[in-house]
Design a binder for these strands. Structure first.
Length: 295
DNA sequence: TATTCGTGGGC
DNA sequence: TGCCCAAGAAT
């Protein structure tokens, strides 16, 4: 059967209705306070929901407002970040909280343009906060939404590596006019991509728009083109930096350099990564030569 | 535009 | 077992 493309309003209704019936209960959805939404979005950048949940709860209990976080040392944020990965996100969240206190009266701003000025907030996160926390109309284009559109509309398994102009135009053209409907559409398409239209084994039998999916209609052709590059890990600077950070993060106080050195055998790489961590502000060098999280 | 930046779980 | 992937941002 050919994929007949329903009118946009029909597509919106079916996906939003599906969301109403099947959406996961997540803490930042049950109480979409802007600061809670913002914290969740930072943590969810490249990190799965199940790993974020416990850290999110502890974080909000300790720092219920941006001002609370801004009043703590940045290093405490890095430590509370735990093993979520990409600890620069913790530093940027702390810096964003500071900017919110200094420039926005302590309240998370609600417009895309204001949000975009905050450290660690890019196109996706600005749109997500404006939409999920403030109910505003915004083009929320994350990896889930991109995959749904790639399959349903373009008939391909995966979206391109970067966001193309035509892709953004498509997402914009599909965005409902009304703010509340647009926000519901954003959340719904993301959820559909996250739990049904997944990267590896899509559950098309549970999809509310399977009959409208072009990829399905053309027989699920596999990705065609240059191989999708996996990120190398073993022996990389990222692995080294992670090992060094773990030593300091899990220590109660300042750490002797010999103890940090024991975490990575390649001396040249170790020194290079240590320098980069100091340069990034993820580590500080005390006067006595010991290493600490940033004050 | 292409790289870099952590971490861990599923297949 | 390795490989792929997960609500990206900054440069």
């Amino acid at each position: 059967m050919p994929a007949t493309t329903p009118p946009p309003a029909e597509l919106h209704r079916r996906v939003i209705d599906w969301y109403g019936a099947h959406r996961r209960t997540l803490p930042w959805r049950e109480d979409p306070d802007p600061w809670r939404v913002m914290v969740s979005e930072f943590m969810l950048q490249q990190t799965p929901v199940v790993r974020v949940l416990p850290v999110f709860e502890a974080w909000l209990e300790r720092w219920p407002t941006p001002a609370d976080l801004a009043a703590s040392p940045a290093g405490e944020a890095v430590r509370a970040w735990g093993r979520l990965g990409y600890p620069r996100r913790a530093l940027r969240l702390h810096a964003a909280a500071t900017a919110i206190v200094e420039s926005h009266g302590g309240a998370v701003p609600g417009t895309y343009d204001e949000l975009l000025t905050l450290p660690g907030v890019g196109d996706y996160t600005a749109a997500a906060i404006a939409s999920f926390a403030y109910g505003r109309r915004a083009v929320v284009l994350d990896t889930n939404v991109r995959r749904v559109f790639a399959r349903v509309v373009s008939g391909v398994q995966y979206p391109s590596q970067g966001v193309l102009r035509a892709e953004r135009d498509l997402a914009t053209s599909l965005l409902p006019e009304d703010d509340a409907v647009a926000a519901a559409w954003a959340a719904s398409t993301m959820e559909l991509g996250a739990v049904v239209c997944t990267a590896r084994a899509p559950r098309c039998e549970a999809c509310p728009i399977a009959d409208a999916c072009r990829w399905r209609a053309v027989g699920y052709p596999p990705h065609d083109g240059p191989p999708r590059r996996g990120q190398p890990w073993h022996g990389t600077d990222r692995q080294c930096r992670g090992a060094l950070m773990a030593v300091v993060r899990d220590a109660a106080g300042p750490v002797a350099p010999e103890l940090v050195a024991a975490a990575w055998s390649d001396a040249a790489q170790r020194e290079r990564c240590l320098d980069s961590l100091l340069d990034d502000g993820l580590l500080d060098l005390a006067a006595d030569g010991r290493l600490t999280l940033p004050g």
